[in-house]
Design a protein around this nucleic acid. Structure first.
Lengths: 344, 344
DNA sequence: ATTCCTAACGCAAACGTTTGCGTTTAGGAT
DNA sequence: ATCCTAAACGCAAACGTTTGCGTTAGGAAT
């Protein structure tokens, strides 16, 4: 139906191979014929059939993105769009396109990945999460397929290129900051510890507390599914403790927003009565009424660097794996003032 | 490198065509050979090369998604993830994959689209916005490429299948609701009127106001870029008017959140002093502290139906274009109480 | 036993590129 | 005029499928 290299070749009185070489600007073609062919190319409105090209070159100019199971959960979180933006920006520069998994369940996602890899629909993959007992990473590893992980590999660190924040350190710094404000009863509110990011931050938190000689009662640590109901229940539980926490370390913007809401309903003032600090800064936060103190994990950068790494990996498959740490930064706003004297 | 149909054929002592037919479960192959071939298929871990398949069948099992220029703007908005989720769910059911545009500028996006279409990377497209003077839709139309639009076509309604809310009506209903609360000075806060969705809603708003015999001063209508700075300026302008509005119709969740923040800073109580109603409900809203009254445009459904339509279009290209209206629903929460007596 | 039919399968072309290698051509050196 | 050498281009195979059509085999009918 549409114009092929052969059509162009015929009209320009050259061989298809010549047209191909003109398209790729091969030096073995004279300027004269190049001009001639290019003219016909324009005239006929030629555009390459990528499938045919991919078939012979065995490359697709596309990279796949594996989302966390439950796109639902993944998509509501500003992390997702932001990291996609980072990936997209880099890919766009390189003329690559993006392909998303659409599966809802873990198995469906795995199938999507297999289809992408085996069906050669993509040249490389970026996995947006790291979870214990997940099948995707082992699969990619086994097939020697170029991929990078955003997050910390749960096991088998060797052979995996990953981009991450130092979540242990980031959480420790944030905890130390909160401790330095005079808080002693600090709660930790986050999602499932199956995700490395959560367990790492928990570790950092506990390290800081221990070093400060502070206790962390088990009831202060709430690891829950990311939804309104469970969130509210966890927050209520915390607030109803005899010794309720005076500060909250929240692992996720959504939970942070939820927490602010519950506190407002209960007429607990932030930061006068309760301090709240929250991971995962996003521009969205600036639209909120309470100026949340947050940790900027530089999500865009995570995506951008991940894309870059995948490209390196594709270009040079035998490259040593590496890990890149994106620094984090505490963005201090006004949700954290609470000196010791005010608490006691 | 990896196992092809020919490899399987050789090992199973049949012709490649037979393997192909077994894969597609053709009735012309005996059960006996089917079993034999399937066994080898498993053993060798065969998986189809989609590029080769696409080349001959001229179909890709993928559909493209065109995002609004400035992925930045698009991605921060919960509309985007939600509509993607709808599209993704349907595509997943049909075994299709998703391909995103990555361009930042309008021209770059247009190039992405051309690459997808001419490069035959996708079977159909979904355009996530409708904007005046945009080149994408005319291009798709000209090439007879199957696509559906989410939103209302800006011109040339014929020949375009689109999914939309009746935004005129939705805005009119919302306005009537606010008017019924006793408000007379109602402001309209939204993004660029280049987008059909905004101008339609503005029309609906003006219709309702006119019918109620209420004036709409030009200063009450703020059509601005979606960012914090411009948003705050617009809101400040409105609040500083001699006759400041008592109710705000906001076209976008982000602006709504921003408005709530500014009002809180100025110590203006919602809803006691100011009513706020907002378009584009999302689950995110439930995480907010102020229970916003919103219009649910059923974003997920928009995406889901759009995907369905694209499939119909692909299956039957000569199908009559159609338009599907997704109903809207006002979700009344607590940001809108303001009876006449309290205002005056 | 021969013929005929149908079910089951194989052959080979086609899809639109890329690319190694062979062939032509033009120009200079002899 | 002849030969040689690059430079410039063409040939054809290959990538992994699908599919129309031709071929085979096995059994039923004669």
């Amino acid at each position: 139906m549409s114009v092929t290299i052969k059509d162009v070749a015929k009209k320009a009185n050259v061989a298809p191979s010549t047209v191909s070489r003109v398209i790729h600007n091969s030096p073995t073609i004279s300027e004269k014929t190049k001009r001639k062919v290019r003219k016909v190319l324009k005239e006929m409105g030629y555009h390459m059939n990528e499938n045919a090209r991919n078939l012979v070159t065995k490359s697709t100019k596309a990279i796949g993105i594996v989302m966390k199971s439950s796109a639902r959960e993944s998509l509501y979180n500003p992390f997702f769009p932001e990291v996609i933006r980072g990936i997209g920006d880099f890919c766009n520069k390189e003329g690559y396109s993006l392909s998303l998994t659409t599966g809802e369940t873990e198995d469906a996602i795995f199938e999507d990945v297999v289809k992408m890899v085996q069906g050669r629909r993509v040249d490389g993959m970026i996995v947006l999460y790291s979870k214990k007992d997940d099948k995707v990473v082992p699969y990619l590893l086994k097939h020697g397929f170029p991929f990078v992980l955003i997050g910390k590999p749960s096991t088998n660190m060797s052979g995996i290129t990953f981009i991450d924040n130092d979540n242990v350190q980031a959480a420790r710094e944030l905890s130390e900051f909160v401790i330095s404000l005079g808080h002693q009863r600090i709660a930790f509110l986050g999602g499932s510890p199956e995700f490395e990011v959560i367990s790492d931050r928990l570790t950092g938190f506990q390290q800081a507390m221990e070093q400060a000689g502070l206790e962390v009662p088990q009831e202060y640590i709430k690891l829950i599914p990311l939804n309104r109901t469970d969130g509210i229940k966890a927050i209520d539980d915390l607030l109803e403790l005899r010794e309720a926490p005076t500060a909250f370390l929240v692992m996720d913007l959504l939970l942070g927003v939820l927490l602010l809401g519950v506190l407002a309903e209960k007429n607990l003032k932030v930061p006068q009565q309760i301090s709240v600090v929250c991971f995962n800064h996003s521009e969205f936060i600036e639209f909120l009424s309470t100026p949340l103190t947050t940790v900027d994990i530089h999500t865009y950068q995570l995506g951008y660097e991940a894309a870059k790494c995948v490209f390196d990996l594709i270009a040079n498959p035998e490259m040593m794996e590496k890990s890149i740490m994106i620094p984090t930064k505490i963005i201090k706003r006004e949700s954290h003032f609470a000196a010791k004297k005010e608490i006691k």
